[in-house]
Amino acid sequence: MKIIKYLSSLIITLVIISGIAPPIVEFPMHWYQYPIIPGLEDKFRNIFFHVPTAWVSTIAFLVSTYYSFKYLTSKNDLYDIKAESSASIGLLFSLLATVTGALWAKFNWGSFWNWDPRQVSIVFLLIIYFAYFLLRSSIKNEISKNNISAVYNIIAGISSIFFTFILPRMLTGLHPGAKGGKDLGPILGGSISGNIMVTFFVSLLGFTLFYLWLLNLRTRTGILMKELKYD
């Protein structure tokens, strides 16, 4: 875990520097210069932060679903703690993705909120996972709480797949990859330069490692709270 901790801290620090500092020029002559992306210009820098936060929230929700399933099959309390921990990190990163996305939308599409299918679907996800925590806090009996919230979390995980990967592609919208849109976006469309691509994938790696560190911390806190009977 020490390696993951130091590596994620180092990688995200480097991503912040290499995402914000390099100049954007029309004809890049050096590796540290980024080319102009038509329609995005300086605003494209947000891609190094907005997409990884959304990526981490998706991973966290799926991992949480996996641990809920493991809990139901084994009845081991550790899996319930891990499921709750991962869901809480997923919720945090969903909020971050919503904020970074709204800021990007303001400067690219004209307003913070545009009722784009992907914006609406993340709100549904936020409501679903807020309800998960409300459900957990409303049941006093430990075993009932763990069982019911695990079942709910599996249904929430399946709906998160629908809201993340299926719904935004079924409807027309402003995000790349929406129905009827030919633009796959700068990453999937493969229209961006190598140095942007490297920074982007390094950012995904750094944020994923950061999620693992947070999951470790949150799980250890959950175990301590359980052992000390602190609620």
């Binding site: 801290s9 995200i12 620090t13 912040i16 520097i17 914000i20 500092a21 560190w213 947070l214 911390l217």
Partner: peptide
């Protein structure tokens, strides 16, 4: 502008790291 933004973001990031 970019370097001011960079400094602020780095300060926030280091704050988060120290807190964790």
């Amino acid at each position: 502008q970019l370097f001011i933004v960079l400094t602020l973001v780095l300060l926030i990031w280091f704050g988060i790291l120290i807190y964790l």
